[in-house]
Design a protein around this nucleic acid. Structure first.
Lengths: 215, 215, 215, 215
DNA sequence: CATGAATGAGCCTTCATTCAT
DNA sequence: TATGAATGAAGGCTCATTCAT
């Protein structure tokens, strides 16, 4: 009944507006969740930060929890993208590893709050959902291990199990980010992460000198 | 009202009782906080787990927060002790490092819940207090770096900055514990942590083969 | 934006459209309010049921409350009409009473949800407005009591106060509808209402057998 | 662990206190729910009326809904008791019926608000739970129908189906209470209910004059 | 000292209503 | 005129903390 012309032929403007606002909300959420923690954050504060009414938040995300997880996912996706771009043109496997690590360090120097999202996610939702960062790790694992395998084949890295070494480097990076962000400025964080990673990489590397210090 | 244990003339038993109950409360707190997370845990649940009334909890700890921090501190202290004991008799520096790492892995295999305490502490109280584990790290840093320095002097580890290498190994261990505990049994966790650490250590090590596999 | 039915020169069609839509909204409202209750019903649901946008509802009714009351009134008006039509040609006073009661039963067998409207109206708006059904009762009271008076004069009903008997029969019918609708199918409801009313009527009736069982 | 002497031997005081407060809460709930309706009532208002904090309400009833239903049940139980007591010593079946109806009228003259509870219950929770008053009706049905059967056997009531007549009288009473409470004082309500019931009873009654007007 | 009933601030979520397009 | 995105007041329920017994 009733002949309603829903969504006037071309609908982009609506969709775009909606996407933009969703984006704004995510950014506001990252900012506030990161600064105050999940539990200490009121949805009203995020609404304020985004310049909308509280009810509007719920038009875009069904719950505070969903908003948080979307924010965490957004942050991890952005990180992944940064790393992918940085690594893209790098051929030498050892360089690739270092470049990737430095891209991570750069990212968190630029968005230091987002580290907290990882920590929050783990603490609040452990058990219910697998941490976002581990999901993204799995998606990249194949490529990551291939790089390491190549480095070993080229005699650049010692002959240890690829999986173990890949895990170790991931753990090192992850631990450095989490620990390093405590009582450090973003700049110091970046330095600490790079130094730790580079130290191990340098120590592991045997030969063919084609690594230039980055940063 | 009938059989009430009125304070017996000598005070000591009271002191002992109080210490014992505090101990029980800490264990109950670790157990429940670790299983459910700080925010999702009600003080009543800890009281139940400890077999006391809720009010009693507040006779031993001024607040839920203080109880949590005391529990986290307790867990870290126990970990420190385990590592100290394990490392005590080991002379060879590389062995010392591996032994320490394995002691950490053993500890968290035995008390896997306690990993959550670290994560919770970071997420909930970041900014207000420095994480317990970093405090304990600082206390042991001197000794830790001394071990590494010795290994380098003996030519067992490559010549990179001690501080950087020490940090890197700490980050690696910390990251392995935190990441490794997700979707793994305590046994698998231990294996993953040891493998990652050993892989790096083996890769770093130059020479004098005196490492026996532990565990 | 392309094919928009701009107000055609003569206004009538618009008026008709408006009336039709108002009608559709009332039906949708009856349906949804009856099924879910006033408070549990969202205006959006009625808009959906009517196939219009939520804002449109407010172009026809100033508030949710007004919409509900209009719906209840509509239902009672339809009932009144049914009863009036059924009773129109019936001469014998006892038959008129029975016919009226059966018309009510028929109506609610056909629109069982509408019983809920009566219940809802009473519960939600008591005190603010007199229940619709009592308003309609007052309008018909004169005629109703005249019928009873006639039956008494004809010696068909015992000599009790007309007002009391009229009230009693109304209460009986009203109570039967409200109670009878619980855990009964519409068909069973009709049967229960008719049986109860007929039983009393038969018990009251003295003589001149001209009642045929209806339904 | 910990040898706690829970509930000091005799526990009456606690239990009594709890029962008393539960009682107070029920009365406050009846009062406020009846005056304002279920939805328009805030739990805080009931807490205020009972002189306790909001949290305390939730120590006695798990939810607003449960509180309401408990209140409705309480009111119906009290009604049942009043009727039982009034009817107890009455032998003559017609008298029993009238006495019961008058007891109901008396009860609602005394507690006119409680009528609203019945209306509210029906409106808010229809479908989820059977109305309290119908549950209590079922429990008394056997006795009620026995009385009517006896009256018929004694030739005091006409020979119509017992079940139908019992239902009819119940509906009449129920309808009278619900309709009669609108725009009437408690005193007028009582009068209207009694008159309507007595009118039908008088009209039905054949013979043996042993009914004295009550009230 | 231990208890656990009472407290009340706090917060997520809903949804009637508005209004720019 | 119809739309539906935005608004923000409202309220049920939780739970850390207190304190009379």
């Amino acid at each position: 009944m009733a002949t309603r012309t829903k969504r006037p032929v071309g609908r982009p403007p609506d969709e775009l507006l909606r996407a933009r606002r969703r984006h704004e909300l995510l950014h506001a959420a990252i900012e506030v969740f990161a600064r105050q923690g999940y539990q200490r954050t009121e949805v009203q504060q995020i609404a304020d930060a985004a310049g909308v009414a509280k009810g509007t938040v719920y038009r875009y995300f069904p719950s505070k929890e969903a908003l948080f997880l979307a924010a965490a996912d957004y942050a991890m996706q952005a990180l992944t993208q940064c790393v992918d771009e940085a690594v893209q043109a790098v051929e030498d496997p050892i360089d690739r590893l270092r470049t990737a690590a430095h891209a991570v360090a750069d990212y968190f120097q630029r968005y230091p709050e987002r580290i907290e999202l990882l920590a929050q996610e783990r603490a609040e939702f452990r058990g219910e959902i697998p941490p976002t960062h581990l999901i993204y790790r799995e998606r990249r694992r194949e490529r990551f291990e291939a790089t390491i395998r190549r480095a070993i084949q080229q005699g650049r890295l010692p002959q240890v199990r690829v999986r173990s070494l890949a895990n170790a480097l991931y753990y090192l990076l992850f631990g450095a980010i989490l620990c390093g962000s405590v009582e450090r400025t973003p700049r110091q964080l970046r330095k600490a992460v790079c130094e730790a990673f580079d130290a191990v990489l340098a120590a592991l590397d045997r030969g063919q000198p084609n690594q230039q210090p980055t940063g």
